[in-house]
């Protein structure tokens, strides 16, 4: 099975023309770098000569050079263009190549096409339209990718924290399918309020999580009760080795006044403190205690959305 899709695999600023960046998304070990024009490129992170990760090498012009024997691979085609010490009249056989992947960049994310067939035009990060200062990061967390997505529906407070906000586990309805995502709202309150969240008649805040049926693009929005966006976070996720999950994220505050926000919360924003934290260390006990609730729909729909590799060719 293959989840034919673009995968947002790295923050744009993490990919450069000096040191190759190793990433693992959808179980694929990739190496990302930029050519002399600044274009992002992706190859399999495996030298076809002796299987050593290409990320241990260096970027040379528009190519990456393996750190073991110095074989050079063109970043666009993956073709081996040079083997050190060959004579001028010797040629490298044309089939000598590392696998190259289509790459596209948008809204601060480098996307790699890991599916079969021709890449589609729409990129996961297209919906993320940042304005103003962004807060970014990356991590590998010790949770299987499918579980990470499920927990993002069942208990996002285990994975992300908004400063000054308590996320409740009262779902505002069942998850709704919007295109290739399941969207779920839940109530949230300011932590500074005197009464516990149970006594709240109407939640002053809403946390909206949008989890993909294909790929790994997660969106988390904090809104007012009037559905005005306060903070938006885009989390790119994907399966890493040993049942861990790769993450990279960007988020920003929307530029308007938040009515009813506590003074302390306003002061922290004025001090330019990050409004959210994506957990890079996950509490296993907290995860284990979560009830499997809205994610039941996700498991079924995500399985149905997978495309057999043979059908996609």
């Amino acid at each position: 099975m293959s989840s034919s899709a673009w995968w947002a695999s790295a923050l744009s600023e993490a990919v450069n023309g000096e040191r190759p960046l190793p990433v693992v998304y959808d179980g694929e070990e990739l190496v990302l770098f930029r050519n002399t024009k600044g274009q992002a490129l992706a190859l399999e992170d495996r030298c076809p000569h002796r299987r050593v990760p290409l990320a241990l090498g260096c970027v040379v012009g528009d190519a990456v050079q393996c750190g073991y024997h110095g074989w050079i691979f063109d970043g666009t085609t993956g073709a081996c263009t040079a083997i050190p010490n060959l004579h001028a009249d010797e040629r490298v056989p044309p089939r000598y190549a590392a696998r190259a992947y289509p790459v596209a960049e948008q809204n601060g994310f480098v996307h790699v096409w890991l599916g079969d067939g021709e890449p589609s035009d729409s990129l996961p990060a297209a919906s993320y339209q940042p304005r103003g200062r962004e807060f970014t990061g990356s991590a590998v967390v010790s949770l299987q990718h499918d579980e990470y997505l499920a927990v993002m529906l069942d208990g996002p407070e285990c994975l992300i924290d908004f400063e000054g906000v308590k996320i409740t586990d009262f779902f505002l309805g069942d998850p709704i399918r919007r295109e290739n995502h399941l969207v779920l709202d839940r109530g949230a309150v300011w932590t500074t309020q005197l009464l516990p969240a149970n006594f709240v008649v109407d939640y002053p805040l809403i946390l909206r999580t949008s989890v993909p049926l294909v790929g790994g693009d997660i969106r988390v929005d904090l809104l007012t009760a009037e559905e005005r966006l306060i903070c938006s976070v885009f989390v790119a996720s994907g399966a890493n080795r040993r049942r861990t999950t790769s993450l990279c994220w960007r988020g920003f505050m929307h530029d308007h006044d938040v009515e009813g926000a506590p003074l302390r919360w306003r002061a922290m924003r004025a001090a330019r403190r990050p409004p959210f934290t994506v957990s890079s260390e996950i509490d296993g006990a907290q995860i284990a205690a979560l009830l499997v609730a809205p994610s039941r729909d996700l498991t079924v729909l995500r399985q149905q959305s997978r495309i057999p590799a043979t059908a996609a060719v």
Binding site: H49, R51, W71
Partner: peptide
Amino acid sequence: NSVVRPQNQRYFEQPEQRDLHSRF
């Protein structure tokens, strides 16, 4: 070790491609 360590692991995986060689 920086190269043979990951290399060794990859010989346990079923390779789609066989190793390539040069005259060296």
